[in-house]
């Protein structure tokens, strides 16, 4: 391939990647109740519709609440697990690591029907604990990967140095290890939040009219009618994700030991 053709290809691919987002943004400002593109006129009515609609608002609040709780549980459990996996010298360690990361590979529909059947038995369909547990299972591997990456670039000599300087195990963890793997932990927390915030397949199965998350309502809206409110919701969700992505870029530069 010659250079101009190569660059033209890359520009085309880049457009393919971002065009859908731009289309959704434009569509959210349409003034007609259709997905026609480009819109014939512009308005904010679909945003007004979102904020005026009790069901949309409730699902937005539910999604945020679930995602916030998942962030706490997945980050705590995942960070502990990553440290255990990194430091531990025990039989079956690689199998254990595989188990922790398996939800990334196992098709979502399987996790979904499996949890569906278990939640029916436990009467947890459409419950807040049910959503938090289900989303934590799929968010956990992302926290573990991020924290383990941070730990693998962490120089264990620093822990030896700290102990030679008189610090006990807890002091070393608090003053040396934790601050240095913090960027990985925070990145894991952001991934956990976004994973839960966006999760759809499992949520479709374990939801009930009592508790629906935003993606579930979007799915129902898209399959039932052409209501551009869903585009306005999509833009709001994008804002949340982009905001969090910007946050990770802010914390990334301070990461790790350079030595």
């Amino acid at each position: 391939m010659t250079k101009p053709i190569l660059y033209a290809t890359v520009v085309a691919i880049a457009l393919w990647m971002i065009a859908p987002m731009l289309v959704v943004i434009v569509t959210s400002f349409t003034d007609t109740p259709s997905f026609n593109f480009p819109p014939s006129g512009y308005s904010l009515r679909w945003y007004e519709n979102f904020f005026a609609n009790q069901a949309w608002r409730a699902s937005f609040i539910n999604t945020t609440l679930v995602a916030a709780l998942v962030t706490i549980t997945a980050t705590t459990i995942g960070t502990l697990a990553a440290i255990g996996l990194h430091k531990g010298r025990f039989f079956g360690k690689s199998a254990m690591t595989g188990l922790m990361l398996a939800p990334l590979i196992v098709p979502g529909i399987l996790v979904a029907i499996g949890l569906y059947s278990v939640f029916i038995q436990l009467n947890m369909l459409g419950s807040l604990p049910g959503f938090v547990i289900a989303h934590t299972v799929v968010a956990l591997p992302l926290v573990i990967i991020n924290v383990m990456t941070a730990l693998s670039t962490f120089d264990s000599r620093l822990e030896q140095a700290a102990s030679s300087l008189g610090a006990g195990r807890w002091e070393i963890f608090r003053r040396i290890t934790m601050p240095l793997i913090m960027p990985g932990v925070l990145a894991g927390a952001v991934f956990a939040f976004i994973t839960s915030f966006d999760e759809i397949i499992i949520s479709l199965f374990i939801q009930s009219p009592r508790l629906q998350t935003l993606p579930v309502r979007m799915f129902q809206s898209v399959t039932q009618d052409t209501d551009p409110t869903v585009a306005a919701v999509a833009v709001l969700m994008m804002l949340v994700s982009v905001g969090l992505a910007a946050l990770t870029r802010l914390i990334k530069p301070r990461s790790g030991s350079k030595q």
Binding site: V24, F197, D198, P215, F219, V222, A234
Partner: peptide, 11 residues
């Protein structure tokens, strides 16, 4: 960084 539902809607 964008929700699966958002992307699907775009398509």
């Amino acid at each position: 960084w964008t929700s699966l539902m958002v992307r699907t809607l775009a398509w």
